Computed example of a mutant assay.
Amino acid sequence: MPDVSLDKAGIISTVLEGILYGFSVFMYGVTLWVLFYRRSTKEVNRSMVVVACMLFIFSTMHIGVDIHRIIKGLVYNRNFAPGGPAAWFSNPSDFTFVFKSAIYSFQTVTGDGVVIYRCYMVWQNFYIIIFPLIMLCSVVTAAVGSVWACSQANPSQGGIFFKLTGQWITAFYASTLSTNLICTILLAFRIWQINSRVHRKTPGNTSLMPVLMIVIDAGVLYSVTLLSALLCFVNHTNGQYVVLDMVMPIISIVFYMVIIRVGIAKVTPSSRGGESSGMGHAAAISHSQAQSRGEYAMRPLEVHITQLTESQKDRHLHDPDGSITKPEYDSV
């Protein structure tokens, strides 16, 4: 099957990115509504607001550059010799391509940083995120190297698929994919572990499985997109331009999705029973007295997906077998 030409790839990628961008803008608005009006604490989580705004700004800048490239390549440079628009789009050293690559790098580093931050807040252990932080450093290094390599690339030498450029871009894709997978596994394992401990103490009262599914859904969506881009790139197909432009709004969508799915499903405690339920945003458990020797009574438990932390003082309340008997969580 013949590869798609670069000018066609540019049109297709911009259209698909525009569709996903429109969806992400809607989700951005809903995310701000959730953070400001459906929060579980008195204070607004400013860090998450800042991240949401940064992702929105990066996505907006990226699609703006892509639209400018389409106009510049198909209108202003349609008589570009030799080769026409396809030849112009094949030049990765053009300022517009280098600039959009830099924006994509910022977006990726921000998204990976948020995943690592959430991983730390769940585990409350710095040692857990040492390796993800090392991986994040490799992401930053590969991002800088790939942007630099693009600025030095020559279309006559293969463009973006030139050996030097290809090595940096492959390293960038591989490092950010690995970082996302590692953090998703750590998050999923920790939530599953806490859910198992809670169920051993209060079987049937609550479940963190919805939280687990939200984390897995977000990780899988992002990982599949990155893997598609990586496979397209290593096979030297122009389809990677299409997937690459789709990754930008998907990074934002994944971040917004985690917050929105919890905020929309949130149900506050009712006056009738004092219980709360929802798709992983809030769950309440009460246990009035110890069930057996060595166990402690449990007080209400709240779980919020955007940050899941075990309070430090509760770490000392363990059974002889190491089970947590009094977990408590805060919201991000």
Rank of each mutant, 00 (worst) to 15 (best):
S151M: 04
V15S: 01
I103Q: 05
S151R: 01
W123H: 15
T184M: 08
L55T: 12
Y120C: 02
I70P: 03
S292V: 10
G29S: 10
E295R: 12
T206L: 13
A171R: 01
L212K: 12
F162M: 06
V254I: 09
T14C: 04
L301Y: 12
H287I: 06
I182Y: 13
I253S: 09
A283Q: 09
L227T: 08
Y76A: 10
A87G: 08
I185E: 01
T31N: 07
S228N: 08
V247L: 11
P320K: 04
F36S: 02
T237P: 00
V30A: 08
L186E: 07
E328V: 07
N91S: 10
Q240K: 05
I134W: 11
G158V: 00
G145L: 06
H236K: 14
Y329D: 09
I182G: 09
A290T: 11
F23N: 02
Q167P: 00
R272V: 01
F97H: 07
L177T: 09
Y256K: 10
T225V: 12
F36G: 01
F126H: 07
T31Y: 06
L308P: 02
P300K: 13
T225K: 02
A86N: 13
E295M: 12
T225A: 14
H62K: 00
K266W: 01
V115P: 03
